[in-house]
Design a binder for these strands. Sequence first.
RNA 1: GGGCCUGUAGCUCAGCCCGGUUAGAGCGCUUCCCUGAUAAGGAAGAGGUCGAUGGUUCAAGUCCAUCCAGGCCCA
Length: 1057
Amino acid sequence: MGMRFEAVDTKASFPDLEREILAFWNERDIFRASLAQREGAPLWMFYEGPPTANGKPGVHHVEPRTFKDVYPRFKTMTGHFVPRKGGWDCHGLPVELEVEKEIGTTGKRDIEAFGIAAFNARCRESVRRYVGDFERLTERIGYWVDLDEAYWTMAPGYVESVWWSLKSLFVAGLLQEADKVTAYCPRCGTALSDAEVAQGYRTVEDPSVFLRFPIVSAPQADLVGTSMVVWTTTPWTLPSNTGVAVDPDADYVEVSLDGERLIVAAPLREAVLGDGGTDVRRFAGTALVGARYEPPYANVEGAHSVVAGGFVTMDDGTGIVHLAPAFGAEDLAVGRAQNWSVHKPVGDDGRFTELAPAFVRGLFVKDADPKIVEDLRERGVLLRSGTYEHSYPFCWRCKTPLLYYARTSWYVRTTQVKDRLLAVNDDVHWYPEHIKRGRYGNWLENNVDWALSRERYWGTPLPIWRCDRGHLRAIGSLTELGELAGRDVSDVDPHRPAIDEVTFPCPECSDESRRVPEVIDAWYDSGAMPFAQWGYHPDLGRGIDEFERHFPADFISEAIDQTRGWFYTLMAEGVLHFDSTAYRNVVCLGHIIAADGRKMSKSLGNIFDPWEALDRQGADALRWFMITNGSPWASRRIGHEVLDDVVRRFLLTVRHVHAFFVTYAEADGFDPSSPAPPVVERPVLDRWVLSQLAGTAREARDGLDAYDATGAGRRIERFVDDLSNWYVRRSRRRFWNPGGEAERDAAAAFHTLYECLVTLSALLAPFTPFIADTIWRNLAAGRDGHPESVHLADYPSGDEFAIDGDLDAAMRAARSIVGLGRTVRTETKTRVRQPLAEAVVHLPGSHEGLGPLLDVVADELNVRRVVFAESAASFGRWHAKPNFKALGPRLGARVQEVAAALAADEGDLAGALAAGESISVPSSGGEVSLGPDDVDLSHDVREGWGVASDAGITLALDLHLTDDLRTEGVARELIRAIQDARKAAGLEVADRIQLGVEAGPSVSDAFARHRETVANETLAVDVIHGEVEGPAVEATIDDELVRISVRRADYASPADA
RNA sequence: GGGCCUGUAGCUCAGCCCGGUUAGAGCGCUUCCCUGAUAAGGAAGAGGUCGAUGGUUCAAGUCCAUCCAGGCCCA
């Protein structure tokens, strides 16, 4: 005998087993081995989207990391070389905020007091620490990615590569400085990119105020004395009001109300003023243009007039739009055109400055709103105030309301390459597909220039040096910088503040050039990973080969929020630098939300800690949940209950099959290298399960090839259920090999189940890599040339065994029949242990394929024989209903007439159909001929029989009990009771026993007549009437008290010798 | 205001692309059965206006239109 199988502990904790497998992977370096053995194979490139190491990883990191593992593992197993370089996003505001929390700073002034060098050192340290947390989680969930060779966006080589790219943008005129109104976070003290703004919209209530702007002069003199009604939700911008805009083509109306003359746009008259007052006259907006009004707060000389604006809408407000050029994009454009100077009474910290009215100075602008409203009320400027609910952007990290500020920032001119972005996106495969033209496509269509600079500290320094005269120079590397500076700076850390200290004489004018103060958007860093992860730098001759070989990626996967983030920056930089997409296939995932259906947040206290799940249910459970539960692109709720369910329903089922096999294989001494009976010669159940296995393998493979891991996983789940709850259940006793005649059958069963388990292990390997390897290592590793880990094996192709469609269909029918039989037994309260004489089956079409399965059906139903109904005689009255799918297309509306005719049938027509004959029924279009396939048949119950039917299949059970049947039923009850006694006595499955039975006449008679069966089933080598020395149990069978005693026999029966 | 996704049993979700008259699964609940894989398995039951309305069709959970609600995103 060869190697033994190790007993499966059905009580072992999955997390413990997973830790054992992890230790094995580590010790044998299986990940590297899996890569090494595919070296030279076709490359299938994966890019790791770097998580930002600004906090402990959460369960929302497990989701993408699961998918980022499944496909590369699968591709590796299908013969591809899949390098997996890890990566960490190190820079950016999130990291700074985390450090700010640690050291208790609340703004830029504090940070500068703390010292930029010390602050950035803290940032670096924080990143290192959290990367450690990520590494532990990554390993624990079995996400195979090369952590040793991971790229870090803060590494000098990475930064230099980014510099190279920025310099090339600058040289091409695609990186420019511009004055624009941008969303600005006053707390963080920096402008935000559109992508960042997009992440922070929240619905809020803001003040809604309607104001009087009295006209003091106008081209049409009779307008003097009227007041324009102006609306705003940002009272704090009113001290900066410099003008108003109207739509010159729209109608405006003068309303006389409570002695006032008010002007609003005609379409908004009712919304603003209700139906009070009277309309005095209407006129076009042009009439207002050029009028001057008395502003709520005086500021800029010569302004405060009405201009025409194409952006004025009649959607909300009054049609007369308040303009504050310091705080709005359109406002700024108008102000420039009008030559108004910008009045900005607000500092970078979001507080009013000396330029503001005295009563709000020093206040945060949003906090000043009530005071301003009150002031306007007192001065009679306020017409009406209330609140207005709308969505307003907040800083995505610190939740401070964003302010729109006119500021100078650096932009990447992505609008210049918008057409290329759209063209390139055309060739990208999105999963799910709707993202491509939907959310992502829309985003590209609405592309605006990328606000790149950040007035912060911890980031890639913007590599642009400027002299006092404003000459600009972009620097592509430390080498280049050193040449200009006239000293070696190759050891200088390319971060603030060290890099800021490197200056050089301006090549144009010799004035001192200093680096501009900004760092860049960290999203640019991660978008640069296709080249920067290799330190790509053509000027320095670095990383060129690595980059070119590995660009673009075949596969990336992240959650849906990355449409505006990494998916975009990756593609934008791909197009900007290489005129190419950076990826070919994207799997886009939904979000994981809390069990209560809400977003996880600390304040709600509904955070789901992945480690808790990893310690309770384990990584396989978590992974299987991520892959098979719900739609990956929809948001999904996670909680311990659903994970427990995964364990119970799926993982434990897999384990039980494994354990069952090992138990019996060990008992029998099964050796998988023993010659396997040819599949065609195996019993029908074996051929069926192998056909299922082949179909599952094929569908799993096709699913994974099509990036449908969910469909693939669910198919495997169905197979596991078939394997466990049909194949093993039906085959159970075949594994108890008594030798002799049964030898060959047992061999077929063992080989079949072995093949199923080994193949299943490989099928599961990408999904649940732990339990897959547990099974593989026990059953396959080291045998028959199999590698030591399933992750070094090939993915099953489905060609190993034949798919037999006819057999599959026949088994489906057989299982329906069994289900019907159970229904009948339940309904007629006939216990399954009671044998019955006959089951009669009727089903549409040919029943040829079912023939070989009748034994299975008979056994499962515990009937002596199963026969096909030759005629309706076996049943009661028949009913026929049209098979609409068949008849509908043929008959159209007349199908309803046929339905009526069949409903009126007394049983003759249906009976004829049940007998396989054709009939004809009248209809408005003439006689319609119907064959058995054109109808679904059902029937009435017949006296003494139990009948059930479903989907055209009908089953009748003969419930008449003969003495013979009854006795056998009693014997079965006795067997059952003895098995209970064995269990109660704590005996092993294979233990032989001495058996004592004391019973009344009925049971004794049954025992006598079925003595051999009872002894065989219960492994009794010695049977006596009376009692043996050992544990005894009592049972009631057939209304008689039975006393059963068992005792382990210390010798085997002669048959085993 | 616009885009996309989602809406099916108490809960979690299939089914919808490709229409067929009895809408499924798991969990939970009730009753029962079975049991040497047993932290399983099976049957029955309660529980569904398949978000709403209208349309197409002999036939709509499924196709079309409009609307409603939730989510994400954009403005």
